[in-house]
């Protein structure tokens, strides 16, 4: 599904990714772990198409299609979803209306009419319940004044609404207490199927107790330095990252 080959990328003149390779197949869960500054968030941003990052070499493809020339919204329409480490506050636009706009933008790109209001409402209700999100929350301005945990829960709510093919969760566990972590992980697990895939970027192993990865990769200094099964995460938790350098 997602294939990244020899990816080099830089931001503000600094080389961050230095020849990264990874392949994610449908139905798989991959975890990318690594120390701060290794390039984990850069990888997420580059796959999502953030224009602040410059891809200097290599290739990213989704289902065989090269993503190079696609804008972030076009990539989203192809099924890429990024749960942001730091979701942006957008005062004046409510959670409900934002997600409606996003869903209908995707439908428009597929030549479909807007989703009927009743269907939209039903879906919103269903997914809000899955993530134990209160109704009043949905009429608040997007991320404005949300706690860290609320922001992350809102990200996964949007993921549930958009039903992406490939979800990249960038440090979704940071700022979550253990109860919120369970809710969020449960949401992600419910959305998993044999046709979609999840890439979990995390610094700590704890989230992986709940979202169990098929593969764990260690990203250090812009490259994958080690890959393994879920047991690698436990080893990293115990030993830290220094032994890999």
């Amino acid at each position: 599904m997602l294939k990244i080959e020899n990816l080099h990328a830089k931001v503000e003149g600094n080389d961050i990714l230095k020849g990264l390779n990874i392949e994610v197949k449908p139905g798989e869960v991959h975890a990318i772990m690594g120390p701060n500054g290794a390039g984990k968030s850069t990888l997420a941003s580059v796959v999502a198409g953030n224009e602040n990052y410059e891809v200097t070499d290599g290739k990213i493809s989704l289902d065989g299609e090269d993503l190079e020339d696609l804008s972030p919204d076009e990539r989203a329409h192809k099924g890429i979803f990024l749960s942001f480490q730091y979701p942006v506050e957008i005062p004046g636009v409510t959670v409900t209306n934002f997600i409606k706009t996003a869903i209908n933008a995707k439908r428009k790109s597929q030549g479909l009419e807007d989703m009927p209001a009743a269907e939209m409402l039903k879906k919103i209700r269903e997914k809000a319940a899955l993530l134990e999100i209160d109704k009043t929350f949905l009429s608040r301005s997007l991320n404005e004044g949300f706690s860290g945990g609320e922001k992350k829960r809102n990200e996964i709510f949007q993921m549930a609404m958009l039903e992406p093919k490939l979800a990249i969760l960038d440090e979704t566990d940071s700022g979550l207490d253990i109860d919120a972590l369970r809710i969020v992980a449960n949401g992600v697990n419910k959305l998993k199927s044999k046709d979609n895939a999840v890439v979990v970027i995390t610094h700590y192993q704890r989230l992986l107790d709940y979202i169990v990865p098929d593969f764990v990769h260690v990203l250090a200094d812009g490259k994958i330095v080690k890959s393994g099964g879920k047991e690698l995460a436990l080893e990293l938790e115990a030993k830290g990252y220094d032994w890999l350098k």
Partner: peptide, 16 residues
């Protein structure tokens, strides 16, 4: 710009 990227990531075209 970060808000624009966030919205585009959710599928909303840049102009909108």
């Amino acid at each position: 710009k970060s808000a624009l990227f966030y919205m585009q990531q959710r599928g909303i075209p840049k102009v909108e």
